[in-house]
Design a protein around this nucleic acid. Structure first.
Length: 438
RNA sequence: GCGAGAUUGGUGAAGUGGUUAACACGGUGGAUUGUGGUUCCAUUAUUCAAGGGUUCGAUUCCCUUAUCUCGCCCCA
């Protein structure tokens, strides 16, 4: 036999059941909050025509996309959920109800070099709110309100939603005397947390920006303090319409955040947030865990003016955000923030003592399941010790033992696996106990 | 795409130019067949990524290839 060594592709996360249970719980929490805020679910194909995904033709995207042909079709794996959403919205425009609030939790694929905390297959948990021609700016505050609720409920420690506005950045850079492309500068500014202010200064000078202008940039992005301090400082800046507009939007968002009930300890204005994706045109967000800033952004997004411009004439402004769940989960695991271990989801395991007891045991499990109690039955013919050992390993809290005595008396023995206590009771009492516990 | 390092069983790993490759975890079986998580015993890699070379002899030295990890780029 020529055996193939079992192995998974690098950059593809695979979990053991106990971790998968944890992962799914996080997923459920996120989904639950999304739905509570009125987002409807959609699902799009993993594969799309390459021309759809590459319509925008950003250089990086093309390099990282998984692309292949099958017959005459040029096909690619989706690398995010926003581009498929753009296509979806354009394609089903006439059947959608706007503002269209949808969420999607799905896997995406990026063919890049895997590294720590970067995956080639990972889950994104997206929400977007898309308007038909117009979208009120108050939605730019609702999105962080959703994120605030999600991370509060995930209970993974104190976090900060950092907020900025691309119009402020663009408006500010208009006032500079330089030919350098704004996106070049933004890219460097975005890296400040990673490389520090000195390296950033060097890189800016390296772009042939005058020292005087570089100092202006540094002074600008170092505007800090309380939300009110930053807003005041911004009001004092000289600039054109774009800057003014950006500042107004930022003020609105901050005010509305309060109305949505977001605790002001959980967000702050951060002028260094730029976001690489160039489709953002207004408010942008990034979220970090306060205790683990090195982890980087666990969730980011922003406002865009025209989602589907490559697919339709309709103007569809929107705002959205995405949680990179796979990375978040793997980091949280690595740092030991997630611990609760459950190897199994069942409440009770039914163990027939011997072969003769199987039909009685099946009778009992049928009733448990009918009553909606998550339960399982051990059906392998092995020693009784082995059966209990199995129960112990899967971590089930209760075991129901069925032997000759029990069957004769029409009872069951319920054993608490933690304390070791056990008691013989009748079936209806057993059902009652678990039903009331639910 | 560029740069650096690694590659020993199911996992974490120690190790050496020379007859049987530590140790730990995990797995399996057992310690008077109606009671598990502890303990004890047994067992668990003819083989050190693949191919070639040096050598009496290589898992250990050299070369090539492959793979992986970590940076850069970019990003969740």
């Amino acid at each position: 036999m020529n055996r193939v060594k079992p192995k998974t592709l690098p950059g593809f996360m695979e979990l053991l059941p106990e971790d998968q249970i944890l992962f799914n719980k996080m997923c459920d929490t996120i989904k639950n909050v999304y739905e509570r805020f009125g987002f409807v679910p959609i699902d799009t194909p993993v594969l799309e025509y390459s021309e759809i995904l590459l319509a925008k033709a950003g250089g990086e995207t093309e390099k990282q996309i998984y692309r292949f042909s099958k017959g005459d079709n040029d096909i690619s794996l989706r690398f995010d959920l926003t581009v498929p959403l753009a296509r979806y919205t354009a394609e089903h425009y006439d059947q959608l109800i706007f503002p269209f609030k949808r969420y999607q939790i799905s896997k995406v694929y990026r063919g890049e070099r895997p590294q720590k905390g970067r995956f080639r297959e990972f889950y994104q948990c997206d929400i977007d709110i898309i308007g038909n021609e117009k979208l009120d700016t108050i939605y730019e505050a609702e999105v962080p309100a959703v994120i605030y609720t999600v991370f509060r409920e995930l209970d993974i420690g104190k976090f900060t939603i950092r907020i900025n506005n691309r119009k402020i950045l663009n408006g500010f850079f208009e006032t500079l005397h330089t030919d350098v492309d704004v996106s070049e500068i933004l890219r460097i500014i975005d890296k400040i947390d990673k490389i520090g202010i000195e390296s950033m200064k060097k890189e800016l000078l390296h772009l042939n920006i005058q020292e005087e202008e570089v100092m202006k940039i540094l002074n600008f992005i170092q505007i800090q303090g309380s939300t009110q301090d930053v807003l005041d400082a911004l009001q004092n800046l000289n600039g054109g319409e774009t800057l003014k507009q950006g500042i107004k939007e930022l003020c609105d968002v901050i005010q509305n955040l309060k109305k949505f009930g977001v605790d002001d300890a959980y967000y702050k204005i951060d002028l260094t947030i730029a976001r690489g994706l160039d489709y953002y045109t207004g408010t942008v967000y990034e979220t970090i865990l306060d205790e683990y800033p090195k982890l980087g952004s666990i969730c980011s997004g922003g406002r865009y003016d025209n989602l589907s411009e490559y697919y339709t004439d309709k103007v569809l402004p929107g705002v959205g955000i995405s949680i990179g769940l796979t990375r978040l989960f793997s980091k949280l695991k690595e740092m030991g923030i997630l611990q609760r271990k459950e190897k199994s989801l069942i409440k009770v395991l039914v163990i027939p003592f011997d072969e003769m007891r199987k039909s009685y045991a099946l009778e009992v499990i049928k009733e448990l399941r009918k009553a909606g109690i998550a339960s399982d039955i051990y059906l392998q013919d092995r020693g009784f010790k082995q059966k209990l050992k199995y129960a112990n390993r899967i971590g089930v809290p209760y075991v129901v033992i069925l032997g000759e005595d029990e069957e004769n008396k029409n009872e069951v023995t319920l054993k608490n696996m933690e304390t070791g206590e056990q008691d013989s009771i009748c079936l209806s009492k057993l059902l009652q106990m678990f039903m009331s516990e639910k």
